[in-house]
Amino acid sequence: MSFNNILQSIFSALFVASVLRISTPIILPALGGLVSDLSGAINIALEGTMLVAAFTGVVVSAYTESVLLGVIAGILSGLLVAAILGVFHLHLKTDIILAGIAINIMATGGTIFLLYVLTGDKGNSSSLASGSMPFIDIPLIKDIPFLGTAFSGHNILVYVSFLLTWLLAVFLYRTRLGVHLRAVGENAEAAASVGINVLLVRWIALLMSGFFASLGGLNMSMAYLTLFQRDMTAGRGFIALAAVYLGGRKPWGVLIAAIIFGAFDALSNQLGSLDVAPQLVQVIPYVATIVALVVYNIRQKAVALERMRSFQEHELTAQQAVGD
């Protein structure tokens, strides 16, 4: 496959469709990361939460033969993981990073262990007949040539992730609880001083975070793929955290950042057909994440420094003028 062919495939409706498909399991946990980050706690356990939910959804849907029950169980398992983090972080005052790492390690090992117990296989759950969440054809749009291929026929979670971004934006900026959540994250003392229940708000934020992450996990195991593979989240929970910062800690910004990471991921899939070592190509989304974060931080520092300098100069001259 030549370079031209690659270019052609990138500017195609199918590529757009694949970007959307691949971005969704980054968008959803990124929204979760955003909620907890705004409340003042970095939820580093997004990765583990996704993994647990992905596993639980597959297993429950296979045994109950109900997609709905699988999804509900997956969400509940994600909330449980968030609750464990909450108990350790909010009540026992563990460092949230350490608690999060512990949860991630436990999720990796625990899902493989249970997978082996249930199926006798340590790699994947292909022996279980898992259900799949529905795929949606959008009326009218599905018949338009380019748009139809790009935007119609996706799994329901692709559309849900956009809807949730909008709902989250409304929640954070238009509702009392959302405003309190942001106030707690920025200045908990100030929030407490006006009678806001800081602990309760932090609990709500962590549980919401678990909810979003579990949808991300379910998106991996009960949509395009209908099975659980060991470590199938492959760092998406962490890339989601990067998207939170890159997106300027705002819902729509986070969505766009997650889509950019998804695009790099999709790109590396396309380049897989080129005559390059596949390992090099697979590394692209992760390198892109690091480069993006480094550039972002350097820029932020430069901006802050410049602001400080001009402010000091201005104040000194202004006050000297008055003093004389």
């Binding site: 409304v170 238009r174 509702t175 009392r176 405003v179 309190h180 942001r182 106030a183 920025e186 200045n187 003392e189 100030a190 929030a191 001083s193 006006v194 009678g195 806001i196």
Partner: peptide, 24 residues
Amino acid sequence: MLVPSFTVAENVVLGAEPLGKGGM
């Protein structure tokens, strides 16, 4: 005891915000 990214008005009413239609 103020929240840096909030507007002046948001800080003034924080904790006792006036609500409009639909609880927004």
